[in-house]
Design a protein around this nucleic acid. Sequence first.
DNA 1: TCTGGGGTCCTAGGACCC
DNA 2: TCTGGGGTCCTAGGACCC
Length: 424
Amino acid sequence: MPPIFALVDCNNFYVSCERVFQPLLCGQPVVVLSNNDGCIIARSEEAKTLGIPMGLPFFQMREQFPNLSIQVYSSNYALYGDMSARVMSILKQFSPQVEVYSIDEAFLDISGCAGGDLKAYGHRIRHTVKQWTGIPVSIGIGATKTLAKLANRLAKRADAAQGVFDLTGSKPQDDVLQSTPVKDIWGIGRSYSRLLQANGIATALALRDADDRWIRKHMGVVGIRIVWELRGISCLPLERHAPPKKSLMVSRSFGRSITSLDDMREAVATYASRAAEKLRRHRLAAGILSVFLMTNRFKSDEPQYSNDIKITLPVASSDTAELIAYALAGIEHLYEAGYRYKKAGVLLTGLVPAHQIQMHLFDARDRERAQKLMTLVDHINTQMGSGAIQYAVAGFRPRWQMRRARMSKRYTTQWDELAVVRAV
DNA sequence: TCTGGGGTCCTAGGACCC
DNA sequence: TCTGGGGTCCTAGGACCC
């Protein structure tokens, strides 16, 4: 049986999560900010209607919309991650074939599940997710992932069929593709969009019927796959199991610029420590550690500097102390006094499963002991809350910490932040 | 004062080898 | 004047995604 893809996408996901626990926000313009309260990364429909663009820096929103009353939240990933897991577990009851594509999206293969009426099945999914979690979703159905994505866009339109759009029927496809600008196709970004339009390919229909050789030449195999998917030939299979991670990064902009090596050391030690925790959670070890730092690229009047260094470890490791040591050695090498640093980060690559680390003959480190210590630290931090135990080099209450002034409570993952309901 | 973070895949080009 | 051909591997950078 050929697959039938349903793309289930949570509407304005972060805003919807906030609304579940603060129903007063429903009907009001709401936005959620990126880390460091930097940019707007989620908007309610009301906020979109007001003309607030995606990615707008928060301080510019305050300049441009000074008189509007908009509810603003810092991003609360503890809450969003947990709500996402709830939504995904519900979707798995509607199909054994689910690919969790991002925090707020999943592809389902619903061939064989829907019993003939795809649209009705979509509505059942939508209704169940809403009832059980409070999160509204939109569902697009198509013969390929690309077409399901496209259908999802239509499902979100107010005039469409209440959140579900089925594109598998052959009839309506041409006009739908005709009315879809190339920039709205999954996989077509700014640059390809410009290229295509400059060559007279402005709609999904035109792209579907474009010349393969031209596409291959200018957009590579990625482009060919998009075109074929638009023709209904599935090139992107459902991936039920996430392929193994190839890299892992922890980086943050600083709440205020760093101008001393001591502060930079604290920040980088903190990031290395977080990265090591992530490694262990995925049962991985890293063979290569890169560190980078940079000044604020938006401040053209300030001297600019950015640099990075890549360190190959003698033996792949997930030991916090060891990764911190390499990261500090790296950052001390990169650090130049006299700049105002805005961001730094630690990137781990050369990842291998923790159980198949290649040992080194002259390795002096007592790795067994280190591993026991890490297991203990992780256990304590799981029980007592993240950060209960940490390395002193990472600093306490550091000056450079990111801003998150408008954070809601962690309603679903923290006992002392549960929602309180009062019966009057 | 103020501008996110974390990923993947693909391609071109250089280094190196026979 | 004129300077092979064909591989592999690695890396940096571009493009895209959410």
